[in-house]
Amino acid sequence: MIKINNTAIRTCNNYSVNDFELDENLVATTLPDITSLSIVGERDNMKLESFANFELKHPINYVLDKQAKEKGNVNLFFEINKNLTTPLFIDLSKNEKLASNLQIDVLENISAQAIIKLQSKTISYNNSRVQINLKKNSQLDIAFVYDTNACNLVSIEGNFDENSKINFNLFDFCNNVSVYNLYFNLFGDNATSSIKTIYLGKNNAKIDINYLNELYGKKTDAKIEVVGALNDSSEKNFKGTIDFKKGCKKAYGSETEFCTLLSTDAKSKALPILLCTEEDVDGKHSTATGQIDDKQMFYLMSRGLNKKEAQKLILKAKFNTIINDLFDDSLKNLILDTIDRKFE
C-alpha cells in the first residue's frame, strides 16, 4: 500500500482519514502511447502546445506526480487569450492507460469554458496532473467528468489572481478507485472559487476527495459544495479544507457536504476542516449524512414508481442545484444521462 492524498493537517491516525491507502498493484508500470485524443475548441482564441511543464505544490503523491510528469503520454498546454464562445472540449476516453499533464492559462480579462471527459469502460489507469492559472479579471467555467472502471488518480492545482473567478465542477461516476486532490491558491484580492462535486458510488467503489483552498487575498471567496450517494459497498472520504491565511481580510469561505447512503454496507467519512489565522473573516461548514426520507419514497412509490426510479428522482432533485448551474447544456445532458444509466 502507498499513502496518497494527505490532508492539509493531520488528525489522529486511528481515524484513518489522514491519507488514502492505494494498492500499489493498481499503479501502472508501463504507459503505452495514447490511441485517441479529441480536442474541440476555438483555435483562433488560444495557443495550444503539446508540452506542459509545471510543478504542483500539493500533489497527490510525489511518486505518482513524478510518473505523470516524466512519463506522461498526454501533455497539453492551453493559453486562452480571447473569450471563448463555446467550451473547449477535451476527450481522453478511448485510451487504455493515461498519465497526463494539462495546463490551462486564462489571460487577463478573458473568460473561457472547458470540459474534460474521461468516460470509458476500457480504460484501466488514469494518473492526471492539471494546473489552472487565472490571470487578473479572468474567468473559467470548467467541468471534469469521470466515468470509468479505472484506477483514477487526479491532481488539480489552481492559482488565482486578482478578481479572477473559477466555477469548478467535478463529477465522479467511477466504479473502482477514484482519488481527487485539489489545491486552489486564492492569492489575488477578490479572487473567487466555487467548487461543486457530484459523486455516485456503486459496487466496491472507493472515492477519496481532498480539496484544499488557501485564501491569501483580501475579500477572497471560496465555496465548496459536495453532494453524492453511495450504494452497495461503496465508500467515500471527503476531506475539505478552507484555510484563511493571515491578511485575507473580509474573506468568506464555506463548505457543505451531503451524502445519501442507499445501502446498509455503504460507508461515508467527512473531514470538513476550517483553519484560520485571520480574525476578520467569515467561515462555516456543514456536513450531513443520512438515507432517503421514507415518506418521500412512499409518496413516489404510491404514484407508481419503482424503488430505483423513486431513488433516482429524489437524488436528481438533490443534485439539481449543481446541475442547473452548469454552463453548457450538452454537459447538463451528459450528467443527467449518466445518472440515469447508473440506476439501470
Binding site: I9, T11, C12, Y15, V17, C259, L261, K267, S268, K269, A270, L271, P272, I273, L274, L275, C276, T277, H285, T287, T289
Partner: peptide, 10 residues
Amino acid sequence: RSDTIPVNDV
C-alpha cells in the same frame, strides 16, 4: 488562531 478538524465516520 482558530481551527476546526472534525472527523465524521458514518
